[in-house]
């Protein structure tokens, strides 16, 4: 019995498993950084959409409708690849000489010197930015709606106190907007959490990739424990992990909503 427990403990704490546990940091980083960026992009997009200057309004509307009109995976893959190519193209226009261009046989990059090799940290940041861009479009819609549900009287009162337009915006409008935006933003946050499972598509060794490696059948005693296909057990762990994170976020958002709703008579709950 105790032998058994000791065996499983040592199995679950071997090097590969520890790497798996460590890879949770990528998921958490992407969720937190991507979520922050989504709120930032959402605020920018909503300001654009609310703008009185027509081109800005059009940009805001196009951003929020086009990005939501295509699957998140597509944009999630497209943005890092396109960004990498854009940088390489810029570098190539500076460093490549005609001889280098002639020497290059592959389709991309234009010359070997302009190649930008991305590692895990770079991909992680790019993935977070693209998560932020995709879900920023959702947040744009939420915040746009929330800005419009702030009672007009509040803004008029602020204006009557002699506040300037930017003071009204930052001290009254956006402050009061959060109560109306929080239910929607909590939904966007859940979407972001679920989208973090896609990190392995950008060659990041995240929890999904490690679950796949650890669960893959092993027949060589030299490599480790001999077992058949255990992948479903590892995926079951991830399944439960994501449900727990969702549950925790729900509790967290409930608490935040309660706090943000202090002193406001009828909020959107």
């Amino acid at each position: 019995m105790s032998d058994n427990i000791a065996f499983w403990l040592s199995y679950l704490t071997n090097g590969k498993h520890l790497t798996w546990y460590a890879s949770f940091q990528f998921t958490i980083f992407a969720a937190v950084f991507g979520g922050t960026l989504a709120v930032v992009f959402g605020l920018i997009g909503a300001t654009f959409k609310n703008s009185r200057f027509l081109p800005l309004r059009v940009i805001g509307s196009i951003y929020s409708s086009i990005v939501r009109g295509v699957p998140d995976v597509l944009f999630f893959l497209f943005f890092p690849l396109a960004f990498e190519q854009g940088v390489e193209w810029l570098v190539a226009s500076q460093v490549c000489s005609p001889e280098m261009l002639a020497a290059q046989s592959a389709a991309w990059p234009p010359c070997k010197e302009a190649n930008w090799l991305l590692g895990t940290p770079e991909y992680l940041v790019l993935a977070s930015v693209s998560l932020g861009l995709v879900y920023g479009a959702f947040a744009t819609n939420v915040i746009h709606g929330a800005l419009r549900s702030v009672p007009k009287g509040q803004l008029e009162a602020a204006r009557a106190y002699g506040m300037s337009a930017s003071q009204v915006l930052w001290r009254v409008h956006i402050r009061q907007m959060w109560v109306y935006a929080l239910p929607g933003l909590s939904n966007v946050w859940m979407l972001i959490i679920k989208a973090t499972s896609l990190l392995s598509l950008l060659q990041i060794a995240d929890i999904v990739l490690w679950a796949d490696r650890l669960g893959a059948p092993n027949f060589l005693p030299a490599v480790g424990l001999v077992h058949d296909d255990w992948r479903w057990r590892y995926y079951l762990v991830l399944f439960v992990f994501y449900i727990l994170v969702t549950w925790l976020s729900e509790k967290g958002f409930d608490a935040i909503m309660k706090r943000a709703g202090r002193g406001i008579l009828s909020e959107a709950r």
Binding site: M190, V208, D212, D228, R231, Y235, F239, I243, W247
Partner: peptide, 22 residues
């Protein structure tokens, strides 16, 4: 409903496919 709404579709795919494989 809670479990399938609270977890990513990507994981659900992997889980059910590997379950079917086993």
């Amino acid at each position: 409903i809670y479990a399938f709404r609270g977890s990513p579709l990507f994981i659900q795919f992997f889980m059910i496919y590997s379950l079917a494989l086993s």
